[in-house]
Amino acid sequence: MTLENADSGSRTIAAIRTFHYAVNVATLALSAVVIGTDVVLRYVFNAPLSWGIEATSLLLLVMVFGSLPYVWERGGHIRMELIYSHLNGVPRVFADVATALSGGLFSAALCFEMLRTFPGMRARHEGAENLGVPFWPFAVFVAVIAGLMTLQFVVFAVHSLVRGRG
């Protein structure tokens, strides 16, 4: 929605949507399969999995952050539109810039923190004990997504400023 007029923009949206779909197919389906398998193995075959919870937790992380860019593109965040929908001109630009700043503050801080901490996570061997998977690649994934989100908010702010002037 933020890039609706630009050709490259619609390609970006399509890419984000495809990514969103791929992430959710993988994570939702895998989570259901892992949990379902764990239940059957435990209840029917008396052979519970030791890494089911760890695997599902990491899948959830990928699902949540893999979805956030598309949630923004599609205007999926819950907002109060009572006043916003009637705003025009400068007040509208003001509201949009406030939105971009709020979101940008969060995503930039998150990106920064993940980039700052992932080498330490790696050095300290932080990871899922039973699954035997290190955490740091997931921190890098979150950093990349948060970086992309920051970019989205910057683009949105610039667009609304340009539109407000025109």
């Binding site: 008396n46 030791s50 039973n130």
Partner: peptide
């Protein structure tokens, strides 16, 4: 496991 029990991980 060493005593023949089955460890189950529950939150």
């Amino acid at each position: 496991r060493a005593v023949g029990a089955l460890p189950v991980f529950l939150s």
